[in-house]
Design a protein around this nucleic acid. Structure first.
Length: 268
DNA sequence: GGTCGCCTGGTA
DNA sequence: TACCAGGCGACC
């Protein structure tokens, strides 16, 4: 994401939109071509990332709001070039630059927000923000009945964390993805904060090929050996998504096991 | 909370 | 051919 935003910023800021082409019916259903036409002549003032969202601020104070979903990316070329195979939208600038939304699965979204209405994205803190703390997680998770992994994927908990890096972070923090979110102890929450940051920093550096170490510790490693304890990695399904974890070094917290135990006084 | 549908492409 | 996919909103 950081990379994509940089590409967009370099190509677009300070330039003027000539036209925006919507090249896939799903995008045209969401944003009418007539509305897209109103972007003509707008100057791009700045580009901002919030979580997985990209906000393109225009000089008329409207916001062009882009979300890549699964497979979106930017390709920058020239208006005169042939369109790439999976071009779903194209932002043509008056200087001849073309910013192509390349998106094989065509799940990315484009929206225009009216002037003076800063979009409410419903996001929690960025992982790097000082407000993303163990205390914040404790507050969030206290109201959650379900497992920690789905709770961590909720963008209101932390902005920008996806399925892969949620799995990676839980592995780093040695937390069972099935553990009830509300059962996590302070020490685990502190580890989780650091682990989320570490996992995402790793994601950013991998993007540039800085790191030579393997891409993932657990994600997509079903049956392969845990890098810490050599136990085979397990894949399960949680809220419709794959979760990968090490059944040995990501144990459910001791406290939740105690909670689950039937009290001695309870009748059988 | 969980499941489905959106879309298309890669892989077994 | 079937299943899988890094997200998310609509729906139960």
């Amino acid at each position: 994401m950081e990379h994509a935003v940089g590409v967009l910023r370099d190509a677009a800021v300070g330039r003027t939109i000539g036209r925006v082409r919507l090249l896939h019916p799903a995008l045209r259903r969401r944003l009418s071509p007539a509305r897209a036409r109103t972007l003509r002549g707008a100057r791009i003032e700045s580009v901002q990332r919030r979580g997985k969202h990209q906000l393109i601020w225009l000089d008329d104070h409207r916001v062009l709001h882009v979300h890549f979903r699964m497979t979106g990316d930017w390709l920058v070329d020239r208006t005169s070039d042939p369109l790439p195979a999976h071009a779903r939208a194209a932002i043509e600038l008056t200087d001849g630059t073309r910013i192509v939304l390349d998106d094989p699965r065509a799940l990315a979204t484009l929206d225009i927000h009216p002037a003076l209405a800063s979009p409410d994205l419903g996001l929690g803190p960025e992982p790097s923000d000082s407000s993303f703390t163990a205390d914040w997680l404790r507050t969030r998770f206290a109201r959650v009945r379900g497992a920690v992994k789905p709770a961590l994927l909720d963008q209101r908990t932390v902005a920008g964390l996806g399925n892969i890096y949620a799995a990676e972070a839980l592995w780093r923090a040695r937390i069972d993805p099935r553990a009830p979110a509300a059962s996590l102890r302070p020490a685990e929450l502190r580890r989780l904060v650091l682990a989320v940051r570490a996992a995402l920093e790793r994601a950013a550096s991998t993007r540039y090929g800085v790191s030579k170490s393997p891409r993932f510790h657990v994600y997509d490693r079903e049956g392969k050996l845990c890098r810490r304890c050599r136990t085979p990695i397990v894949r399960i399904r949680q809220s419709g998504r794959s979760s990968y974890f090490c059944p040995r070094c990501q144990r459910a917290p001791a406290r939740s096991r105690r909670f689950n135990r039937v009290p001695r006084s309870a009748p059988l």
